[in-house]
Design a protein around this nucleic acid. Sequence first.
DNA 1: GATGAATGAGCGTTCATTCAT
DNA 2: AATGAATGAACGCTCATTCAT
Lengths: 192, 192, 192, 192
Amino acid sequence: MSKVQKNKKEKEDSLYTAAYDLFTTKGIHNTAISDIVKKAGVAKGTFYLYFKDKYDVLDKIILNKSTEILSIAIKKTNSEEFLNFEGKLLYFIDYIIEYLKENKLLLKLIYKDLSWGVIKKAYKDYKEINEIFGMFEEGFKDSNLDKEDIEKVLFMIIELTGSVCYNCIVLNEPADIDKMKPILFNTIKKII
Amino acid sequence: MSKVQKNKKEKEDSLYTAAYDLFTTKGIHNTAISDIVKKAGVAKGTFYLYFKDKYDVLDKIILNKSTEILSIAIKKTNSEEFLNFEGKLLYFIDYIIEYLKENKLLLKLIYKDLSWGVIKKAYKDYKEINEIFGMFEEGFKDSNLDKEDIEKVLFMIIELTGSVCYNCIVLNEPADIDKMKPILFNTIKKII
Amino acid sequence: MSKVQKNKKEKEDSLYTAAYDLFTTKGIHNTAISDIVKKAGVAKGTFYLYFKDKYDVLDKIILNKSTEILSIAIKKTNSEEFLNFEGKLLYFIDYIIEYLKENKLLLKLIYKDLSWGVIKKAYKDYKEINEIFGMFEEGFKDSNLDKEDIEKVLFMIIELTGSVCYNCIVLNEPADIDKMKPILFNTIKKII
Amino acid sequence: MSKVQKNKKEKEDSLYTAAYDLFTTKGIHNTAISDIVKKAGVAKGTFYLYFKDKYDVLDKIILNKSTEILSIAIKKTNSEEFLNFEGKLLYFIDYIIEYLKENKLLLKLIYKDLSWGVIKKAYKDYKEINEIFGMFEEGFKDSNLDKEDIEKVLFMIIELTGSVCYNCIVLNEPADIDKMKPILFNTIKKII
DNA sequence: GATGAATGAGCGTTCATTCAT
DNA sequence: AATGAATGAACGCTCATTCAT
């Protein structure tokens, strides 16, 4: 990588980092582009060399972070041995919950704008996300559900888990995440 | 009600209506207070006699509309006869889904800011919402779940239904709501 | 006029005056709205209560000033006695030339954006401008030209006079206005 | 011409062409230097190797194009035979009008900034433009006008023609150019 | 209670210009 | 000679909020 290329990468990265820090601490609404560039230590115009507007950075951050989490979780899950699919899935979900428990601000940021569409996009572009679908299909191979229905069940489990995480971790409603987990896991067991 | 009081009520109502119309059609972000007062046909200063700011109206609208929907649904459900609790619950949920299907813009508006906290608040203040909890507790009376756990299950069913409605009706992801319904109902059956 | 109305008029007038002064001295391109409001002694937002943007004030200034000049000139001309139409027309034109000679900056400002369309607009709205057309038609009543052709001749005389004024007074090209006048007048005599 | 010099010429030409295209289609105000270089396919810095700023290219374009038109018109006129000076002059003017009728965008671009000064400059530098003055002086040799007055008459005819072209072709005011032509030609006949 | 003119901080965005490569 | 990433002053414009009437 040339010196110029390296410098560009550094600027872009510092903008990402600054935006992420401000979005999570001050909120998206309260973060101005001038705040981001000030924190990143670059000129205002530089921002527009890399991003269209505030929501452009946000979208890219959400996609990156979401993919990162799922990627780590699936990698970790695949490195372990399980008796059955149920155990594997619950381990995977538990890993994500524990991760988000430690990254409350990240959870707050990504949940509101994380949609099934984003996940589907990541699924196409990233090998690791693809593996989640693979794991899920494998787990359901003995059932009489077709591929589309399996996807719908996965969608519901993800949405349910996401909702529970957001409400319990961020809002502490209706209960603490640790108190909620057994019920959630029980529910997921019933679903699959 | 005196003439003055009636006039006040009219102004407040016109502000509510104008705000609701603009929020649903133009979006919250793109609606300014000046837009609301122009549409409502009142002076700018008048807005501040009734509301703190834009988000104050929004919160009140969400609370009102949410309560209204749930209230209608529970009233309708109570006017019918059912063989068992499962049938009753699914009828109740189906009614809400069908309602939101017809009111896509409303769904879009309330979902993003509808939290368990709002529902809990409505539950304390409105008789009809209270009945939903009553119906649910009644349905679980034979199980060995305590009151808190029952509430958690209800919470999950509501969150799951809300997520499915938002994704399928507003975003059409991962499938049309009518294609998703059987899976959702099946899942709810498994949960209870 | 109420106090509020008077105050509004004052603000608008001060914006007009400030804009005119800056446009003529610094040029349109080099005048920012912040300059105008600073000079006018009002807040930035106040500008937008009265005008759409910089070019909105400009258009209105051009229309006002143009109408004003023509209005004064026709009034003055009508107060004098003439042997024939030719004398009357040349007096009218001479009056305008002398006026613009004393108001070089105004000439510079209005010429570039003064079009026949603006004059036609003023002709419909202002009684005095209308009289110019009347005077012209009266002068041509013995010719065999129809109304439309008379208008075309008037148009050419105005354009020619305007061009000569701008070039000779503002740019001093190809000669001083006083040296050019005889040729211009001679030409106009030939035209009518 | 060396390869390097050829390359330089190519770059400069592509900048001219790009600027001309953008000025005529998007307008001068709405064309940024970044637009020009993008269209020309050169780097931003390269622009400054050839031009001072946006108005530098503009001035050069106006001078080039104006000279080009006049040059073609005089060449064409000189290749024809005429009974008298009047016929020759009107042919010359008509040629220019027809040319501008087909090049509305060019007319729009050059008119606003085309001054007698530009023509005088071209007259000194370009042989063909010089011939126009020659033709004119030749045509007036029997009158008792001195050289300076002849120039003034020429100036007025050019300004009048220019005004009529701009208003009738670009703005369609006060009439279509073809409807205006007879009156214009008649007027010019009267002037000379 | 109701008004709406006035405010001005603050926003996103542009773009001519520079200069190390 | 050519590049194009970086700059940052400057801009137009918005809009929540105030307050004299």
